[in-house]
């Protein structure tokens, strides 16, 4: 404690007398090193310590070695693919039906190159991506303002909530027959189904975000003179952003599933259509290719969303 050095002198009753007492006790000698540490501590910039820290640890391995190490961590995935390949190739000798039931990964790759040379693969991918991004974009454009407004004003929330909670439990797929009647078979109908799927996670997360704002931050904003509009833009919106991104990620994930379901039922193109079409043709390699692509693209979309979140919210710890 700070009193350790002082206990040597009699308890002073005022600042002036304390000074005198220190001089009498020959305090200058004791105080010198204390002052020295104070001088050393102040001017050193944190960047200098960062350089010092870097000099104390070995340099990071080159990029290619880190990439290799990362791939090595995927051993289970690699083993899975290899075993699958072996089982389906050697299994075919025992049971020829396995050729159709479980085509090997290499067959999926050749199916991909096959469809690519015919030029249809990218059309399917592009159509599916286009539908999902359009629908999730629309769900965000409508859902975020609606959710934030519901979080901002409880009167608005009480009015809107019952209607929303009534529609929400209806699965998007249950809308398909009606939406085909409304929009026919095509992009609009599928976009509508994906929109329904993505809309509610976006609304509910935005709502939670707007309600979750630290009340002290609102008070701080108010005491620093923020008007309602400014308070919304500078406090409520940034505070809700992490939730909004979570809502968009969940919406995108669910929307992606709804896309495939929608395209399976009725569509002129897209990955879901490709799978369904391959089923009628008994081309299980195309089916598997469609499934793999859906998985990979879903992963890529989610990764892009996370990167966008990091870009937009540099202050946030990341997800």
């Amino acid at each position: 404690m700070s009193g350790a050095g002082r206990s040597a002198i009699p308890p002073p009753s005022s600042g002036v007398r304390a000074e005198q007492a220190r001089e009498k006790a020959g305090y200058a000698a004791v105080e010198a090193p204390v002052r020295a540490t104070a001088e050393r501590r102040v001017p050193v910039a944190p960047e200098a310590f960062a350089r010092l820290a870097a000099s104390m640890v070995p340099p990071p391995p080159p990029t290619w070695r880190r990439a290799l190490a990362r791939i090595c961590r995927l051993w289970l995935l690699v083993a899975f693919v290899v075993i699958w390949e072996l089982v389906s190739i050697f299994g075919q000798r025992v049971n020829p039906q396995l050729d159709v039931m479980m085509p090997p990964p290499t067959a999926v790759i050749s199916a991909a190159s096959d469809l690519m040379t015919r030029g249809v693969l990218f059309t399917h991918i592009f159509d599916s991506l286009y539908r999902v991004l359009l629908a999730v974009g629309a769900a965000t454009a409508l859902g975020v303002p609606l959710g934030l407004a519901m979080g901002w004003s409880s009167r608005f929330r009480f009015a809107v909530d019952p209607l929303l909670e009534f529609i929400r439990p209806i699965p998007p797929l249950a809308w398909i027959p009606l939406s085909i009647l409304w929009f026919g078979i095509g992009d609009v109908q599928i976009v509508y189904i994906i929109f329904l799927a993505a809309f509610f996670p976006v609304v509910l997360n935005s709502l939670a975000g707007a309600r979750d704002v630290d009340p002290y931050l609102v008070q701080a904003g108010l005491s620093l003179g923020a008007r309602p509009r400014e308070l919304f833009l500078t406090v409520v919106l940034p505070a809700a952003l992490p939730h909004i991104f979570t809502g968009m990620r969940v919406g995108l994930g669910i929307g992606w599933m709804a896309l495939v379901a929608g395209e399976l039922v009725a569509a002129p193109s897209g990955l879901g259509y490709m799978i369904n079409n391959a089923r009628t043709l008994f081309r299980s390699d195309y089916i598997l290719l469609g499934m793999v692509l859906i998985g990979v693209l879903g992963l890529v979309l989610d990764y892009l969303m996370r990167q966008a979140a990091r870009l937009v919210m540099p202050w946030h710890k990341g997800q």
Binding site: D214, Y216, L217, Q219
Partner: peptide, 14 residues
């Protein structure tokens, strides 16, 4: 009347 809060209440995004 400016306020200083116990938990600082700084805007994390600024």
């Amino acid at each position: 009347r400016a306020v200083v809060f116990q938990e600082y209440a700084l805007f994390p995004w600024y």
